[in-house]
């Protein structure tokens, strides 16, 4: 049973990655958007090579959330073109497995963007990204997972709605506020002049808690929301 679940999730993620590797559409647009956001903030805030204190974490998470929203919309737009989402839903597979596959594909794309984004923020805003690399990685993965878990569910729900591009951020941002707060505060604790390791650890714990809640709720609600 669980083997079939993960086989379907793996196949959906693999299919999304194959399509993305061939088109590079979502990765390039998302990356370009994220890099532009960071550059604009650096032009606005960095004076004589010196960035204000404690802004790097906020800028990093703004870029992650905005570019992630763009990727979510595009991922499901692709399923809408040839109505392939209906074919996925019609398959005799566990529908939550399809959700997990789409979530993993999106998570991977967002983490690829972050591989470019984090060093860029470190460079432009003098953030100590190598001080606690393991904890920073945990913050990024857990924060991105919580954000993507809610976003994948909403993007799937809105795929047939005409004003989906407007509605997605309107629904997504208020619900993911706890994840954004955790990500920003945890990252800020690591980026400050004297890193606050216990505080970062606290926020990682809280992010993992929210991840568990969001993923569980999404798995529970995906099947009913996908049946009209």
């Amino acid at each position: 049973m669980m083997r079939a679940f993960f086989r379907v999730a793996w196949q959906v993620m693999r299919k999304d990655m194959t399509v993305e590797i061939r088109s590079r559409e979502i990765l390039l647009t998302t990356l370009l958007f994220a890099v532009s956001v960071v550059l604009i903030f650096s032009f606005a805030l960095v004076r004589e090579g010196r960035a204000p204190d404690d802004v790097a974490a906020g800028i990093l998470w703004v870029a992650i959330s905005f570019s992630g929203t763009l990727a979510m919309g595009r991922t499901f737009e692709r399923e809408r073109y040839n109505d392939t989402l209906r074919a996925l839903i019609l398959a005799p597979a566990d529908r939550p497995a399809i959700y997990v596959g789409k979530l993993l594909g999106l998570l991977l794309l967002m983490l690829l963007v972050e591989i470019v984004l984090v060093p860029m923020v470190g460079l432009l805003f003098a953030a100590p990204i190598f001080a606690y690399p393991g904890m920073l990685l945990m913050l990024l993965v857990s924060g991105t997972l919580g954000f993507a878990a809610v976003g994948t569910l909403f993007a799937a729900m809105l795929v047939r709605v005409r004003s989906r591009d407007t509605l997605l951020p309107v629904l997504l941002y208020p619900i993911t506020v706890p994840v954004m707060i955790g990500g920003v505060r945890g990252t800020a604790a690591l980026f400050q002049a004297v890193p606050d390791e216990p505080m970062a650890r606290f926020w990682i714990g809280l992010l993992l808690f929210w991840d568990a809640i969001f993923v569980t709720l999404a798995l529970w609600t995906f099947e009913p929301v996908m049946t009209e």
Binding site: R7, V8, Q11, V12, K15, T18, V19, R22, S23, Y81, N82, D83, T84, R86, A87, L88, L90, A91, P92, A93
Partner: peptide
């Protein structure tokens, strides 16, 4: 089911489409 939209991924080959859905089914 065969819909009016054909439920196929244009970026995949015919074999990849069939194998993907065979896994799902």
């Amino acid at each position: 089911m065969l819909g009016h939209d054909l439920f196929l991924y244009p970026e995949l080959t015919a074999r990849e489409n069939l194998e993907f859905f065979a896994h799902l089914y």
